[in-house]
Design a binder for these strands. Structure first.
Lengths: 128, 128
DNA sequence: AATGACGGTTTACACTCGTAATCGATAAGT
DNA sequence: ACTTATCGATTACGAGTGTAAACCGTCATT
């Protein structure tokens, strides 16, 4: 017992690719998942199977029997995952101050005019 | 040759804690580093030694002889590291669009009034 | 000169991750 | 019913990580 309780934490890079496929559409069978990621990541079916089992163990993916096989669905919302990961980064690297992240991106020229415009729009919306 | 050349990639969580100590002040001896992180992370000296060697191997930390011992300094700038990690997150989770990260943080209520004000200020500066 | 403290190097070991082969049960076709 | 194609489950295995003990050389002290 006392699983890592997972939820969203502890999803590795490779596992994340599988999650993205499921977030994009679900439920999916293992082969469906492979169809969507094996090409791109150059994986074989067994690899996908392993990743799916690990995700199920972690509680990040849920299964639903469909005849002889399983259909897989995300057990956590992408927005939750993304939110937690973002917060982790901000905490770890920016002392929990999101504005510092923003400053970093700005300084890095990682923001183009489009980004700036979008952010300004969001800011205006938040203001109201 | 062809070192992993590392630079900033491949620094693990535990190693990162050591890097932070060195970014905060350097050069430091191994015991100095331990003084700054062992309490907090509940580590013993050997652990710090291991992490320092690994960081030296990765090229993330440089050494400088000081009598019989070594003094350690970061070999990579914190801003570079932070920038690369930020970019990795944005690429991985937000399709490379920083504005999406920003939107996420906003939606998550991770931004308080202070953050918003700071970001607005940065935006105005970028505009000029 | 012998001993102990200090610091770096080597070795260790369990766990996770990436990647996959193999095994075993079952459904489907012949 | 028997064989084969599917699936999920079990096992594998090398690299990286967290955490640390053991070993070794050297400077300082007795």
């Amino acid at each position: 017992m006392s699983r890592k309780q997972a939820s969203s934490a502890g999803i590795s890079e490779a596992e994340h690719a599988v999650m993205e496929a499921l977030w994009d559409q679900s439920p999916l069978s293992a082969s469906d998942v492979c169809d969507r990621v094996c090409r791109e990541r150059d994986w074989s079916m067994p690899t996908v199977k392993t990743l799916l089992s690990r995700l199920v163990n972690k509680g990040a993916v849920s299964t639903e029997p469909d005849g002889r096989r399983f259909l897989y669905s995300p057990a956590i919302a992408r927005s939750d995952y993304v939110g937690q990961e973002s917060k982790r980064l901000v905490d770890r690297l920016f002392g929990g101050r999101p504005a510092s992240l923003f400053a970093q991106l700005a300084e890095n020229e990682a923001l183009d005019d489009n980004d700036l415009a979008e952010i300004e729009k969001l800011l205006r919306e938040l203001r109201s």
